[in-house]
Design a protein around this nucleic acid. Sequence first.
DNA 1: GACCAGGACCATT
DNA 2: AATGGTCATGGT
Length: 272
Amino acid sequence: MEATLTSGQTFNWEWSADGWTGVVCGRWVRLQQEGSLIRARTSEPQRTWDWLEEYLQVKVNLNEVLASFPNDPHLQLAVAACRGLRLLRQEPWECLASFLLSSTKQIVQIRQIVAMLSSTFGRQLSALGGRPAFGFPSADRLAAVREAELRACKMGFRAPYLLATARLIADGHCDLESLRNLPLAEARERLMELPGVGGKIADCVLLFAFGFPEAFPVDVWVTKVLSRFYFRGRRVKPSRLRSFIEMHFGPNAGYAQQYLFHYIRTQTRGEQ
DNA sequence: GACCAGGACCATT
DNA sequence: AATGGTCATGGT
């Protein structure tokens, strides 16, 4: 669970001695790992846990996913180092907005920005003990604020992108939920029409929110690890990298990407 | 105090 | 098509 929640696919989980605290579908949640089980606590009674099972993707058979990976020693090394890492199924708007804020930011900083944005514009939620919690602000809410208010959340040049995209979602010009049912390439194009959304951020939404398992976000870390593992550390043109990815990683390429990303990031921390 | 971070966009070649 | 500069901020 730790690998899943700290691997840079989501930014709103906080660890403490009591477990992992976060917000899913507008509900405050605390998760505790007990062996192979996960215990969940909410601040209010729940009539169903479907929303959490969907988010955590607990019904995905991880062994089947891993069995679909190519049998190459580098990838297997990453798999061994990131035991239990899963892909979440996040809410599209929160995922899109979070990754709009992610460009050339370290994960710790993205977490700070998301936290400030939520506490400023998000809905306050009841929580068990501790500090109050805040949900991620809706597109409607953000569409109504001024750019300066967003910049006050330390997002810098990303503020106009977030604002413009929030407005396109809020006024119905773009319906995120409808993109879920499109073919991957088409959904990707629709996403890239949004201001501030290029191929990488689109791939993140396709993989982390819409659940396209073959979507493969390529950032500086993934570029680095692919170069090191499969191209003897040499620079590789993006187009060549793309064709290698499609050739090599199979139907669950996105999972493989997440293992490689988390592996290289945790291995080289503090190095160089 | 450099260097860099889960990029996108625009102006030049 | 392919670089190069720019954007804002702060962690390491």
